[in-house]
Computed example of a mutant assay.
Amino acid sequence: MSSTYTVRTKLDSYTYGNEPDELYWTLDSLNVSDSRVAVIESADRDPVIQVSVNPDGSFSVHYEGAGGEELSSSNADILALHQALLTGMRDKNRWLSVLRHLQDTFGSFGIEDGSPVDYASTGLTISTGLLDVSKRNQRLRRPPVLPLTLKWGLLAVTTGDAWGGLPIESTLSLTVLAQGAGVKQGIALMAPRGQIRNGADVGSPELILWAGDGRTFTIGCQSPHGVLQVCNVYEEAGPGWSRVERWTENAGLWVEWVSETERLYHCNHASTAPPTFDDLVFSVRVVDDSAAQA
């Protein structure tokens, strides 16, 4: 049993249209310093929910039903709150039960058994899930670990790989194994403070290869830090314009470590939902097996 809900803040007002990312961004935008709150209410004002953020980053929630029922929860985690709001808006009979369980979820939501949150079932895109991971790590004072990853079902998903332990100079073989139809997809390779080139082309710090331009590429890599950065990219275009995009919506990848000298990349396009990670699949291999370092 679902109803129509309006979400209002000091800066915005919209009718919720089954966009979990938008709701998360609204919660994330709440600010203690200007006393900004979010009000979520159904068309018949049954219920009205007020959400505010606390100085430590936790949330407080107050529920008021048309029949006079009231419930307050505090010290709530942003993702726990987000999931509770989604559940309530889908089934108004569950509002009280889901909000009651928000109490004291801050700092513990999703980690009671020591496992990370599985974002595959949250309704969030990969990019917004990674935003939550980053802010969650900051709140819990976890040391930064790059590249940032999230759990997506059984997979560790990221927007880009940082392959370390490579020699300063190496030759790589990149092979496109599979690609989806209908969109222009590519691979971005970067050697921080170094040079990377396709065959005999002039080198540059970053190289973009389009999957439709060939199946196998021979890459020269000069990386002072022994690091190769890899991510999938894609073209967005309209009448008279085009641009290369990365890291938006559901764009992401998981890395299959074949050996110390070869990795397989399973990529998802930004618009593929739910993610399948088979929009673009390619391998990168160090041609000289003795070159890569353990």
Rank of each mutant, 00 (worst) to 15 (best):
R8I: 06
S13N: 03
Y14G: 03
Y16H: 08
E19V: 11
P20Q: 09
P20T: 07
L23T: 02
W25T: 14
D28V: 05
L30T: 10
V32M: 10
S33H: 13
D34S: 10
S35E: 12
D44Y: 01
R45D: 15
V51Q: 02
N54C: 15
G57H: 05
F59N: 03
G65Y: 01
A66L: 10
G68S: 02
S74D: 15
A80G: 11
H82G: 07
T87K: 06
W95Y: 09
W95P: 02
V98M: 04
L102F: 03
Q103G: 01
D104S: 09
F106E: 01
G110M: 08
G114H: 07
S121Q: 09
L124E: 04
T125D: 09
S127P: 15
T128C: 12
T128W: 07
T128H: 11
T128G: 04
L130A: 09
L131M: 12
L131F: 13
L131R: 11
V133Q: 09
S134L: 13
K135A: 14
R136G: 15
R139M: 14
L140F: 11
L140E: 15
P143M: 08
L146W: 11
L146C: 13
P147G: 13
L148P: 13
L148E: 14
T149Q: 14
L155N: 09
T158R: 06
G160W: 07
L166G: 01
P167L: 04
P167K: 01
E169T: 12
S170K: 00
T171A: 03
V176Y: 03
L177S: 03
V183H: 13
Q185W: 03
A188R: 11
L189D: 00
L189G: 02
A191R: 01
A191L: 07
R197E: 03
V202D: 11
V202G: 12
V202E: 12
P205I: 07
E206C: 11
L207A: 02
I208W: 05
L209P: 03
L209E: 03
W210N: 04
G212P: 02
T216I: 14
F217V: 06
T218M: 09
I219N: 01
C221N: 05
P224D: 04
V227Y: 02
V227P: 03
Q229P: 05
V230T: 10
Y234R: 05
E235Y: 10
G238L: 10
R246G: 10
E249S: 15
N250L: 07
A251L: 08
G252Y: 00
L253W: 04
L253V: 09
E256T: 10
E256D: 15
W257A: 09
T261D: 04
T261W: 01
R263P: 13
R263D: 07
L264M: 09
Y265I: 03
H266P: 09
C267Y: 00
H269W: 13
A270Q: 12
T276G: 12
T276Q: 08
D279L: 07
D279E: 11
V281C: 05
F282R: 01
F282Y: 09
D288P: 01
D289I: 05
